[in-house]
């Protein structure tokens, strides 16, 4: 190791090149130049380069943070809107269910009412029809009786070939009616 160090330290100008410095030769000019060049570079970079880069990075950081904040706010708003929407939807569902139930109830009530009314009307009509039928029947029977009496009277006239008075007619009529009544 010591030999290597001595070799390196004494690696000095050789015959052919002649102008090579030793590895550990201290060159004051190189030292001062190194310091000066670095300080000038530092001054230029500190003035024209690092402020721009650092500002650019900070701007981007702020932009990203702002975007994250706005995204979080948007998410919160979306969540809030979703909750509102779900609440509204739930209420709408309840209302619609209630409306449907009401509509069904109303429809049922209306149907019942209509059916009742129809039934009532039908029964009234049937009653009226029955009455009409009874009346028509009575009228027909009465007319039939009258015609039958008249016919009987004519027939009797013809049979007896004589005139019968009112008293006889009445008597005959009543007898005939009685007979007819029994026949029915």
């Amino acid at each position: 190791m010591a030999e290597l160090f001595i070799t390196l330290a004494s690696a000095a100008p050789s015959g052919e090149g002649g102008e090579k410095a030793g590895l550990l030769d201290f060159n004051v000019l190189a030292n001062v130049t190194g310091i000066a060049v670095f300080l000038i570079s530092l001054a230029l970079l500190a003035k024209f380069v690092w402020p721009k880069i650092v500002q650019g990075l900070e701007d981007r950081n702020e932009k990203i943070l702002a975007e994250i904040r706005s995204a979080e706010e948007a998410r919160e708003q979306a969540n809030s809107a979703l909750a509102d929407y779900e609440r509204e939807l739930s209420r709408a569902r309840e209302e619609s269910s209630k409306m449907i139930a009401d509509a069904k109830a109303q429809a049922k009530a209306l149907a019942d009412e209509l059916r009742e009314k129809n039934e009532q009307e039908l029964s009234e009509r049937m009653a009226r029809a029955s009455a009409d039928i009874e009346s028509a029947k009575a009228s027909a029977v009465s007319e039939l009786h009258a015609q039958a009496a008249e016919l009987a009277s004519v027939m009797a006239e013809k049979i007896l070939d004589r005139e019968i008075n009112v008293q006889d007619q009445k008597k005959l009529l009543e007898e005939s009616l009685a007979e007819l009544g029994r026949m029915n």
């Binding site: 390196l8 004051v28 000019l29």
Partner: peptide, 22 residues
């Protein structure tokens, strides 16, 4: 070592040399 050693371009005197690495 020849590849690593610095090379004097101009001898400036006691303050040192102007070298290739400079």
């Amino acid at each position: 070592l020849g590849h690593v050693l610095d090379k004097t371009l101009l001898d400036v005197g006691v303050i040192g040399d102007l070298t290739m690495q400079m």
